[in-house]
């Protein structure tokens, strides 16, 4: 019997097959949960014309912002593309290089959840009567107006956990969890970087947040960098 082992030796090997034109969900809310080492490996790997689905568009010139800076992203689907120290994305947006699909944060979360749960579309009250409702089907249900929104899937998901096991079960750290558990469900290939990769049994099944069925590859990044620390140190990647 062959043991299940989703470990990959390095971040570079974990992202090696991502092709030009891929859609990629990237976990993180600001720097919390941003899988910086996987993103840097993707920058080194060279894939371009990417569609990125992430809450933000990065800060400084590291992580997600560095991927934008290298002109690898043709479209971003997100709720809040500007943050403290966000300079890269605004330039690319004004230049017309990177297209923006702006989605309210809760609608983005639910579109990802639906995409991962086999639900092609749903109705939501969010954004009714606003510019973000333009072109969307409106329907009255129980006397209230709702917008039709579509489930979202991607070719890949890149997320960061605290502990993963070789079956792909994942625990997260505090508010670094944010989009990761739902993004893990909504991609063809989900890649997790975790500070520790353990043997099966190391994680109590009662506390598993992401069950291993949603995860394809795990790579141990023992001491992950934090965006704010890299920016404070003046790092610009690559």
């Amino acid at each position: 019997m062959r043991m299940i082992d989703k470990r990959v030796p390095s971040a570079a090997e974990a992202v090696a097959d991502i092709a030009d034109g891929s859609s990629i969900m990237v976990g993180g809310f600001g720097e919390a949960g941003s899988p910086i080492e996987l993103i840097h490996a993707l920058i080194d790997q060279g894939a371009s014309d990417l569609t990125i689905i992430s809450n933000n568009a990065g800060s400084g010139e590291v992580g997600l912002a560095a991927l934008f800076k290298e002109r690898r992203v043709s479209k971003v689907i997100c709720s809040f593309p500007k943050t403290l120290n966000s300079t890269v994305f605004p330039e690319l947006y004004r230049e017309g290089f990177t297209e923006l699909e702006l989605v309210p944060q809760g609608t983005l979360a639910e579109r990802i959840r639906a995409g991962g749960a086999g639900v092609p579309a749903f109705y939501t009250p969010t954004a009714v009567g606003t510019p973000l409702a333009e072109g969307k089907e409106l329907r009255v249900l129980n006397g209230r107006e709702y917008l039709l929104e579509f489930g979202l899937r991607a070719d890949y998901t890149l997320i960061k956990g605290l502990i993963a096991d070789t079956h792909g079960n994942v625990l997260y750290n505090k508010t670094a969890r944010n989009f990761a558990p739902i993004m893990a469900t909504a991609a063809d290939v989900t890649i997790v970087q975790a500070a520790q990769v353990a043997e099966p049994g190391a994680i109590d099944p009662e506390t598993v947040v992401t069950p291993g069925i949603f995860v394809d590859r795990v790579v141990e990044v023992a001491k992950p960098a934090h965006e704010s620390e890299l920016i404070a140190a003046g790092v610009c990647y690559p």
């Binding site: 809760g106 979360a109 639910e110 505090k174 508010t175 934090h226």
Partner: peptide
């Protein structure tokens, strides 16, 4: 850096706090 609020400022968690993912939030 992994315990922040929606304004991306550092915060703390009180006794009885809970963490959850975005779809639950």
């Amino acid at each position: 850096p992994e315990l922040i609020n929606a304004g991306k400022r550092h915060v703390t968690a009180n006794l009885g706090a809970a963490y959850f993912h975005h779809a639950d939030s």
